[in-house]
Amino acid sequence: MKDLFSEGSQRYKQARPAYSTQIVKEILKHVPKRNFAWDCGAGSGQFTQLLAPYFEHVVATDISEAQLQQAPYFENVSYQLQAAEQTTIPDQSIDLVTVAQAIHWFDFDAFYKEVTRVLQPQGVLAIIGYGLIQVQDAAINALVQQLYAETLKDYWDSERRYIDELYQTIPFPFHEQAVPELRLEYQWTGQQLLSYLKTWSGLKHYQEHNRNDPLQPISAALQTAAEYLDVTFPVLLRVGIREK
């Protein structure tokens, strides 16, 4: 698993979009037992905090200590520095495994082997993510899409393609359940949009090799844009049940 987000972990926590309770409720429809959950690749706990009210105990793991240090405290949550592919979680002890915006960085075979080991029979795996941002302001949106697809084209890690493909091309060796189409919807200021774009790993790679600021065209356009921008993200959600 790659660690691209330890540096700037506080910015990541502040700038990344928050997940909706609607996502959690859709997942929980498939989870009858709610004793133990494992949030894998938890980062700064963006998804962990939504699980905490529904389970007796949540284990949240990540390979970035800097990210975990940004996570919120809950009495029933244990944050642990562990890789997704090999943990100290006991066999068949987990009712739900979640991975939010992280599975594309994992070694799929090793991770799924670990998930199968720790899940109880009929336990559930939920893969969560969000696709490319869309801005309602057409001019700003065109610049964001150009930044993503043209300016940063050669600077994205190869694993990013799984998000472009809406997580439909990742291996998924579990009994898949039907889920509805969901979106994340926000009203952001221009500064919030820029802060989010600065968390892109492709942007970080670009800045390592170039001196110019690729966000400058967007920054300039925001000077005359509305104070608040309507932005949306398509939710990527796959839910599967471990067979007995």
Rank of each mutant, 00 (worst) to 15 (best):
Gln49Pro: 09
Val239Ser: 00
Leu51Cys: 10
Arg117Asn: 00
Leu51Ile: 12
Ser158Glu: 13
Tyr162Thr: 05
Cys40Phe: 10
Arg211Gly: 15
Glu227Tyr: 08
Val235His: 02
Leu182His: 07
Glu185Asp: 13
Leu28Ser: 00
Phe233Thr: 07
Asp213Cys: 02
Gly202Trp: 14
Gln80Arg: 07
Asp39Ile: 03
Arg160Pro: 01
Ser93Gly: 05
Thr224Glu: 09
Ser93Val: 07
Leu193Asn: 02
Val179Lys: 13
Val239Cys: 01
Leu68Arg: 03
Trp105Thr: 03
Ala110Ile: 04
Ile94Gln: 00
Glu75Phe: 05
Thr61Gln: 12
Ile241Met: 13
Val77Ser: 04
Val135Asn: 05
Ile103Thr: 02
Glu85Lys: 07
Ala139Cys: 02
Trp105Asp: 06
Tyr206Trp: 14
Gly129Asn: 07
Glu208Ser: 14
Ala221Tyr: 10
Leu132Thr: 14
Gly202Leu: 13
Gly131Met: 01
Thr232Val: 10
Ser158Asn: 13
Ala52Phe: 02
Ser44Arg: 07
Ala142Met: 06
Gln82Gly: 06
Ala225Leu: 04
Tyr162Ser: 10
Asp164Ala: 15
Gly8Ala: 03
Trp105Val: 04
Glu165Tyr: 15
Asp107Cys: 00
His205Asp: 10
Ile63Thr: 10
Cys40His: 07
Asp213Val: 03
Trp188Ile: 03
His57Cys: 10
Lys13Pro: 05
Gln67Ala: 08
Gln67His: 06
Ala60Met: 10
Phe47Tyr: 02
